[in-house]
Design a protein around this nucleic acid. Structure first.
Length: 503
RNA sequence: GGUCUCUUGGCCGAGUGGCUAGGCAAAGGUCUGCAAAACCUUGUACGGCGGUUCGAAUCCGCCAGAGACCUCCA
């Protein structure tokens, strides 16, 4: 029931502050996130953005919303400085058909999303699959007087739109139209076809050598960048929906123009809440291929890069990303990764220990203890962190504090009578939910089970015998050899256990 | 050049007008055959200079540094 859903607050770029989230339809959320342009391999920054929005999607689902999550694939429409479409440029370089290029990088993108354990969106529409919808939108914009034809191309009339809707254009990106006039560069191709430098193309007449082309009432051509998102979000989520997300760098011009197109086409604003994920930095700087300050996800996994001392697993990287808030820049450094890796292991280890804990009902008298209250307060803190603009860092901190209780309980450093069985059960459920359902983490230690479990139990048994006979030479030899093999032996009060010490 | 954001202890990284974030690293302790793991204790951090306030790291101003956008970009 929607009335049971916890209230949450979201930072809305439109207003510049946190607002209580109220969906258009109670209990349901429509969310659109700008997906990748598939003309090259996924950028690590894309991964961060999509991991965060995946976590937002997961949290909304977890607290009980029914969510339609739309994330597009842009496979046409980006103009380069020389006016060449990005897709066809890639095709020329690779000697491939444009759709072959799109397909190749789409598959690569999906693989990467799977590696980072993101849930697939409910709908993943492609720009080239929605040419008729985009043409219709151009027609609507023309009918309402916010577009004009020039030489077979259609441009969006930003000045006129801004004049009619002074409270809308520029609101998202904090821009003033007068400034746009003086600041716009005029070195774009076809600039002469525009009435004003800040106008942008919504339909572009294809030049002879342009490979991607479709018929339209105006010319054989292709849709402008920005248009696909307006058309597809409208088609699948309606003219006005709840949440629109994307990377910070899309605020302008992409999102600003998207708003203008939607309002220009139907007179209604596309989304109520705009969320923007911040950039990923490498050693304090924006990643840049031309300056050599860049690392691919693959290099991060293998460690094959001068920027890292070793490889890092995808799940550890996901955890690393979630340790910061989505609206903050996140700086990748080897030290930070090393520290996060240990933090990740600690959390996963706590989870494993917790799931094995049990407290006999007879251990307590049924009343709520101080420890019960402390633990429940931390659980609530984790949820409130997420409620407050999806603050994963705060939630992780609360989970870590819970971790101390879990370890103390497992070590018998606090009596089991101090924790009520139902609190422990609740803790197990909550931990499970946060780690797997919300944070989208997953166990990484190889699918060991069967044989390894048996071997380990044999080895540890031999070691236990040696220790009983005070044969420290043998027991330490076993321990050292296992350490060497990446297995950590833990001698606890309750017996011996082991974990993989490297992932 | 214009617009905007950020600057937190050794390293990351939350937060915020008065109350311990958290992780990693470090030191001491408990436990241990010795370790490891775990647990406990320890750091009096909020770029600089002014101002507002009973009180600011948190609000305002100036300065310095960094970053982002203005052009394809997650």
């Amino acid at each position: 029931m929607s009335t049971d859903i916890r209230p949450i607050r979201i930072y809305n770029t439109l207003s510049g502050k946190k607002e209580p989230f109220t969906p258009i339809t109670p209990g349901r959320v429509g969310m659109y996130v700008c997906g990748p342009t598939v003309y090259s391999d996924v950028h690590l920054g894309n991964c961060r953005t999509f991991v965060h929005f995946d976590t937002i999607y997961r949290y909304l689902l977890h607290i009980g919303y029914r969510v339609r999550y739309v994330r597009n694939i842009t496979d046409v429409g980006h103009l380069l400085d020389d006016g060449e479409d990005r897709m066809s440029k890639g095709a020329r370089l690779d000697q491939l058909e444009p759709m072959e290029v799109a397909q190749k990088y789409t598959v690569g993108f999906h693989d990467m999303m799977r590696i980072f354990n993101t849930l697939p969106p409910s709908i993943e529409p492609r720009a080239t699959g929605h040419i008729p919808e985009q043409i219709e939108m151009v027609e609507s914009i023309l009918q309402r007087g916010y577009g004009y034809e020039s030489n077979g191309s259609i441009y969006f009339d930003v000045l006129r739109f801004a004049k009619d809707n002074p409270a809308i254009y520029g609101k998202l990106s904090g821009r003033v139209v007068d400034e746009l006039i003086s600041e716009s560069r005029d070195n774009l191709k076809n600039q002469g076809e525009k009435n004003h430098p800040s106008d942008f193309a919504i339909w572009i007449k294809a030049s002879e050598e342009h490979i991607m082309r479709w018929n339209s009432p105006w010319s054989v051509g292709f849709p402008g960048w920005h248009l696909e998102c307006s058309a597809m979000s409208t088609k699948y989520l309606g003219p006005t929906f709840d949440i629109h997300g994307g990377g910070n760098d899309l605020k302008f011009p992409h999102h600003e123009n998207e708003v203008a197109q939607n309002v220009g086409a139907c007179g209604c604003a596309p989304a109520n809440y705009w969320l923007h994920a911040n950039m990923l930095l490498l050693n304090g700087r924006k990643m840049s291929k031309s300056e050599g300050n860049t690392i691919t996800p693959q290099q991060l996994f293998t460690g094959d890069s001068p920027f890292v001392s070793k490889g890092y697993s995808p799940m550890m990287l996901r955890f690393f990303m979630l340790q910061s808030h989505y609206r903050s820049t996140l700086d990748i450094t080897d030290d930070a990764l090393l520290a996060a890796e240990k933090g990740f292991r600690r959390l996963m280890e706590v989870h494993a220990i917790l799931q094995k804990l049990s407290i006999p009902a007879s251990a307590t008298d049924g009343s709520e203890t101080d420890t019960d209250r402390a633990i429940l307060a931390l659980v609530e803190e984790a949820y409130q962190g997420m409620d407050d603009d999806f603050n994963t860092a705060v939630a992780i901190a609360a989970l870590n504090e819970i971790g101390s209780y879990v370890n103390k309980l497992a070590n018998k450093q606090i009596e089991s009578s101090e924790v009520s069985p139902w609190v422990l059960e609740r803790l197990k459920t909550v931990f499970n939910a946060f780690i797997f359902d919300i944070f989208g983490l997953r166990e990484e230690s190889a699918a060991d089970n069967g044989p390894i479990e048996q071997l380990m139990s044999l080895i540890l048994d031999i070691r236990a015998n040696a220790r009983q006979q005070k044969d420290w030479g043998t027991s330490d030899k076993i321990r050292d050899a296992l350490t060497e093999a990446g297995i950590q032996v833990k001698d606890g009060k309750e017996g011996v256990s082991w974990t993989h010490s490297r992932g």
